[in-house]
Structures are given as C-alpha cells and as structure tokens.
Amino acid sequence: MSKSLKMIIEALLYAAEKPLSAKEIHIVLPDANVSEIKGTLEVLRQEYESLERSFILKEVASGYQFRSRSEYAPYIMKMLQKSPSRLSRAAMETLAIIAYKQPILRHEIERFRGVDVGGILRTLLEKGLIKIMGRKDLPGRPLIYGTSKRFLEVFDLKSISDLPRLKEIKAFGADEHMPLFQLEEDSPGLGQGEARPIDDETRPLHTQAPEEALEEAIIEGNRPAED
C-alpha cells in the first residue's frame, strides 16, 4: 500500500505543471492523510537526491516539483535557443522591497526607492511575481501589494519566511567591504585586485521590522501558498 501510494504521488508530480502540495495531493487521494503524504513526499525527495540524476524533486513554494540541476542549465538553454530576459535592476529592487516589506502600498515602495514605481509594478504584475492583496482602508483606497506564489517558485523559496535575512550595512563609500558595490566600482586607483574575502558571518544579522511585516502578511490570510 505504501509503495503504491508513493508511485501514485510520483506520477502526480511527474504530470503536474506546478509544485504540488500535500494538501493538493490529498484531494486526489482522500484516503491518505496529509501527514502520510508529506512523509512520502520527503521519502521521494531523498530518493531522487540519492539517485544523483540530472533532476531532483525540489521542495519549493509549499510544494514539490521535479527540477533539473543547475549545472545542466547551459544545455537546456542551448536546446531552447534562448536565454530568458532578466528583470531590470529597478524591477529587481522593487520586487525585493515588496518581498521584504509586504504587505506594502505603492507610496511606501516609492519612499524606499525614492522614485515612481508605477510602470515597474505593472511589469511585475504581468509577470505574475507580485499580486494585489486588497485595498487599504485609507483615503483613495490604495492597493496593497505582496509577492505571489509564482515569486516563491521562481526564486526557489519554500515560503516567504525562507527569504534570506536582510544584512546590516556596515560601510559604504569611503570604506567599502560590500562585494555588491565593489562590483560596480570603477576604480583604477584601487585596481590592485585586493578583493577582500567577504565573510557573511561577520556581518550581524538583522532582527526587526521585516519579520513583523511578514507575519502581518500571513496573519491576514494571504499566505502565498494559498493562491
């Protein structure tokens, strides 16, 4: 019985277009309880991992999905004869603000970035990476934005609480250690390749507002998984 359950779940995962959650599988298999399904999914995941195939069963966006391993991306890209267009830096920053500060209003996003984000919000909505969570009870009833389940799928996150923590900025400008900005730096004067090793662990982790904001998002029943 347990073996056939495993096989059925495997077949469902194989045929699914989206990551499948234990709850969704439970709808197909009402006789199996959710925790039994969860356990089986985990067994399958480990089996595929140990098989060392070119694809794995990935836990993502509150579900499981077969995905190729990243080292085969160049071949797949070549077969598809295309590389996907990337989000612009502005769009990516806006997306990060929404991800970390959701639920968030447009003017709040604009306060973080200092510029209008109307066009970018539209692009992100079209790409399905963000969604409108409702309207705020304020004059003008402004729209509330948050990230979608699709965002979790694309960015390889199990849930929104799986987001990497925001890091404290210790130096910028005169005494930069930040790799991100050394990349941007066009510094012939510094060009002696003294790229300092960056030790993430030495940077204190941040513990405040964002987590609260995220909790709020979940409390409001907008769990991204339940799209």
Partner: peptide, 11 residues
Amino acid sequence: YLRLKEAAGEL
C-alpha cells in the same frame, strides 16, 4: 535602500 539592494542581488 542599500540593504534592500543587496537583498535584491542575493535573490
């Protein structure tokens, strides 16, 4: 803003 920029890079 810098922190969020860095987070965007990490994503």
